[in-house]
Nucleic acid binder design. Structure first.
Lengths: 142, 142
DNA sequence: ATGAACAGTTCTTATCATGAACCATAGAGG
DNA sequence: CCTCTATGGTTCATGATAAGAACTGTTCAT
């Protein structure tokens, strides 16, 4: 690995870490308007784009331990935004669904999230925009 | 905004959020080997690529409130990895520096971080790789 | 039936997040 | 030389998050 390579790698690392903070911090900003924490905000967004989700899948999406997720769902349920529903087919699994209020909040926040991400990538050249999703998915799926 | 646009935006949002989790979770994985939390790991990495840093700059880089950063620096200092040093020119500011042990840990973890990020982007076509840093920086700097 | 695997919960401990109040220092202007 | 204001950090209190271990129920294959 040459000097130039190292430097480039270091800059890429800085950039990617900065971007990641930027993206996840959005949930903070956006949630604040609804008096939600970042995690609660991401939770309702994750649910609304999937309609209803298993706890275990939520854990994977949000990178949370199951014990941790239990607490988050507790707090968000107490806030009246979501509810748990047992799967009658397999009574071990529980689905998370939005309440009516939860749906409203989630619609608003998720809309804001996608709007901001859109604004972010809007600065990029058109052909890069088109391939960006694919590129990012490819990066992540490993 | 058309239907197709909306769908594309939604997928992009999922992808970017997934990538961000992936990137920041790295600090978790890598830190675990050294019995460090994700934040402590990112802290020492942030210091080693900048040699010494003001508290206030660290807060910006890591998206932390100053009170929060104070605690993190406390804990990491207690672990023996960093130390604070007052700026004699302006006695309000304090710089964070690595101890000898901190430098070793930071070198190892930072190397691992860049290696993993490199592996991530290695899957991408060459011309995308070349422009990626620039693209990501442009996305973030707004 | 029995036992292994799975999905969630609960508990404990340390860490992190946030805002408000606070302290010390620096840099004006009068 | 004094205020006044701004700045950089710390401290404190409270709630939220992280991680692991032990536990409850449920399913499924012997």
């Amino acid at each position: 690995m040459t000097e130039i390579d190292t430097t480039g790698t270091r800059e890429l690392a800085k950039a990617l870490v900065g971007l990641s903070h930027h993206v996840l911090h959005m949930f903070n900003d956006i949630g604040r308007g609804h008096d939600l924490t970042a995690q609660q905000t991401e939770l309702v967004c994750a649910v609304i784009v999937r309609d209803r989700v298993r706890m275990s899948d939520l854990g994977k999406v949000m990178h949370l331990e199951k014990s941790n997720l239990s607490g988050l769902v507790d707090r968000t349920e107490k806030r009246g935004l979501i509810m748990r529903r047992r799967d009658p087919e397999d009574r071990r699994v529980t689905y998370v669904e939005l309440t009516e209020e939860g749906r409203q909040v989630a619609t608003s926040t998720h809309c804001e999230v996608t709007r901001r991400l859109n604004d972010l990538v809007a600065q990029l050249p058109a052909e890069v925009q088109l391939s960006l999703t694919e590129v990012v998915e490819k990066i992540t799926e490993s």
